[in-house]
Amino acid sequence: MTFLELTEGPLWYAAATIFVVGVVWQIVGIVLLGRKPDRSVPRGSALAGAVKANVLHLWPHGGFFNKTGFHLVAGYIFHIGLFVLVLFAAPHIVFIQDHITGFGWGALPRWGFVLAAEAAFCGLILLWARRIGDPVIRLLSTQDDLAGLWLTFIVMLTGCLALGESIEFLRALHMLTVDIWLIYFPFSRLMHGFTFVFSRGYMGATFGRRGVTP
């Protein structure tokens, strides 16, 4: 078994299993903690509040646009770039078709891929610079926050190195980092990619009953 066969084969399936089981375990674990029923007489709908909070917090509101502009731009550039890369880069579509879905979809042209990659790198580097440069975020950051950030950076970097697909080792190296990233994900703050819906939703539900969405 070659290094590539290992990382795209048994290691990939193990990592993907740990990722899926870990994420489901985390989410179910959080939800099963439950909430006591609220006996107060509601003025509005909890469900509507949960939906509204999820939409409202996609974008700064309440006069905070200027104060949060850096994080907003860097965050969105990174996330959009990353998702475009993951879902629309031609090698990724082939991999997803072969290993997960059984079907594929149209890939981005090369210029789109390069643009998305540049955006993702640019956003991630800006977020990293803020994390180490801003005294508030430095105080809040843990080893986990930095590990998640660096791991994601390494995955993207090895992905770029493997871009030509001509050197098998580089492709295998990229897959290895992807596998490690997937295994790390459920144990880390990278889980925010799933828990944000619940966080916004619970808050929105609480205040939706009160007829307001902060």
Partner: peptide, 14 residues
């Protein structure tokens, strides 16, 4: 509870 856990897990330390 679930709400506290979701909040604490979702914080990205921004």
């Amino acid at each position: 509870d679930a709400q506290v856990a979701a909040h604490l897990d979702a914080c990205v330390r921004c």
